Amino acid sequence: MDIVRCTIKLDKICALHILNSLAIQLRQPSSNALLPRFTMLQPFTQIQKFGQDNLDATVKALGAFSSNSQAIAAEAADFARKSFEQTSSTVEKLLGVQTLDKAVEIQAAYVKGAYDSLVSQTAKMGALYSALATETVKPYEGLLSKATAA
């Protein structure tokens, strides 16, 4: 039992001696003996920072994707509603027509309006999808330069 106590006391004294000598070596700027041990930890902190940066960028990208997807869905629903209203209005007009010439005139106006509407909607949707891609990728732009610089 006394041997165990002696060993524990010796281990505490040895540990304190090692910690004191380590503290003294760290205070001395000329001592570079411990420098490789501490610089070995630096890549791990860089990897941890890079992982945190990636997580932050992913969260921002998902937020941008979500908001832009909602805008695209709202625009598509609005276009579908307007298209349905335009079609039902044209059908009502066609049901009240007395002559073939008037029916052809109404149908031609409907086709022209539907085509113009489709072209403008295509331009809007193209801009929305372009914004979706741009804003979703934007958080990742600086990460590659940070990774290659490190």
Rank of each mutant, 00 (worst) to 15 (best):
K9T: 11
K9M: 13
L10G: 14
I13W: 12
C14R: 09
A15Q: 10
I18A: 01
I18T: 08
S21F: 02
I24M: 06
I24A: 00
Q25G: 03
L26N: 00
L26Q: 03
R27K: 07
R27P: 02
Q28K: 03
P29C: 01
S31E: 12
A33I: 12
L34F: 14
L34D: 02
L35Q: 13
R37Q: 08
F38H: 01
T39H: 02
T39D: 01
M40R: 05
M40T: 10
Q42I: 15
Q42L: 12
P43E: 09
T45F: 09
I47N: 05
I47V: 14
K49N: 13
F50K: 00
F50H: 02
F50R: 00
F50G: 05
F50N: 01
F50Q: 00
G51N: 05
G51A: 14
Q52H: 13
N54M: 15
N54H: 09
L55I: 06
L55W: 11
L55F: 14
A57Q: 01
T58A: 14
V59Q: 07
A61K: 04
A61F: 09
G63H: 13
A64W: 05
F65Y: 09
N68S: 12
S69E: 11
S69W: 12
S69F: 12
A71S: 06
I72F: 05
A73K: 08
A73P: 04
A74N: 05
A74P: 01
A74F: 02
A76G: 13
A76V: 08
A76N: 06
A76W: 01
A76E: 08
D78R: 02
D78I: 00
F79I: 09
A80K: 11
R81M: 09
R81S: 07
R81A: 15
K82V: 05
K82A: 11
S83Q: 14
S83L: 07
F84M: 13
E85R: 03
Q86A: 09
Q86S: 11
Q86P: 04
T87F: 11
T87E: 10
S89N: 10
S89E: 14
